[in-house]
């Protein structure tokens, strides 16, 4: 790791100020992706601003018909939350399947979505559940937030503060992990709203990160059953391809995981 300067922020405003002062500062949340990247000298921020001790960024609360999760809330906390388990079981399950237990004790929802790794789990939940991302500057819809592989709409000095998930009538996530890294090779989040409308979002497979599958959504809106998506496949053209799985294989996994997510949600 290159030398860096560590700062512990006491508030969001404090964090923003520290970030503004830094040459090439980065927010440090759980650090479960950033620190390994820095250890391999693939990232060299001049300053790290630790936001995990900021009380206002932590915690899970009910907000009308939605659940609001502070950016510095860990995956383990989301997975263990009775509120999340009751209102959006698919989200709790997803959080409980990120990384491993030790990673889930540190990794946070804010850090995960700000990094927007194409193989991360959370982006699929945000998009399928039509979540809203709140920052220190504005609120954005999930679809506006994720702009491409490792790319988000965040400005350099913008800090995610919370994510609000509207409760879903039914939700589930099914992922096929990369055998080595255990990141998603294809992860599909399926959410049905009270009005019967359905969103299907895919992570792990797309070259540009998370994407929706409109054909599956309309099929499921009229018939929320595994068979409804079993025959729908996504084009392999824009999917990732690597030593672990070709784009054609990933396309197959998208269909199979969609089917299994619907089955789990039903």
């Amino acid at each position: 790791m290159y030398e860096t300067n560590y700062h512990r922020a006491g508030s969001v405003a404090d964090a923003a100020a520290l970030l503004a002062k830094a040459d090439d500062g980065k927010l440090l949340s759980g650090g479960q992706t950033l620190l390994p990247t820095m250890k391999q000298r693939l990232a060299a921020p001049s300053d790290l601003v630790d936001v995990t001790k900021i009380a206002e960024l932590k915690g899970i609360c009910e907000d009308g018909n939605a659940i609001s999760i502070g950016a510095a809330t860990t995956h383990a906390e989301v997975a263990a939350s009775d509120l999340v388990k009751q209102k959006i079981p698919g989200l709790a399950k997803l959080a409980g399947g990120i990384g491993d237990p030790a990673v889930r004790h540190m990794g946070t929802i804010g850090g995960s979505i700000a990094n927007n790794d194409p193989a991360a789990d959370y982006p699929s939940a945000l998009v399928a559940l039509n979540a809203t991302v709140t920052t220190n500057k504005r609120t954005l819809s999930a679809e506006d937030f994720f702009t491409g592989m490792f790319e988000t709409a965040l400005d350099d000095d913008e800090i995610v503060t919370s994510v609000s998930f509207p409760a879903a009538a039914k939700s589930a996530y099914a992922k096929y992990p990369n055998p080595a890294s255990r990141y998603a090779m294809a992860g599909v989040f399926v959410a049905q709203q009270a009005d019967g409308s359905v969103r299907v979002a895919v992570t792990g497979a797309g070259q540009d990160g998370v994407f929706r599958v409109p054909e599956m959504e309309s099929a499921l809106a009229s018939n929320f059953a595994p068979d409804a998506v079993a025959g729908i496949s996504v084009s392999a053209d824009n999917l990732l391809s690597d030593i672990h799985g070709s784009s054609a294989y990933r396309a197959n996994l998208v269909t199979v995981m969609a089917k299994r997510a619907v089955e789990a949600a039903s």
Binding site: L28, G31, L35, H105, M106
Partner: peptide
Amino acid sequence: GKAVKACTMLAAQ
């Protein structure tokens, strides 16, 4: 009280 990976945390944290 929680298991973490000591290689993925700064001493300062």
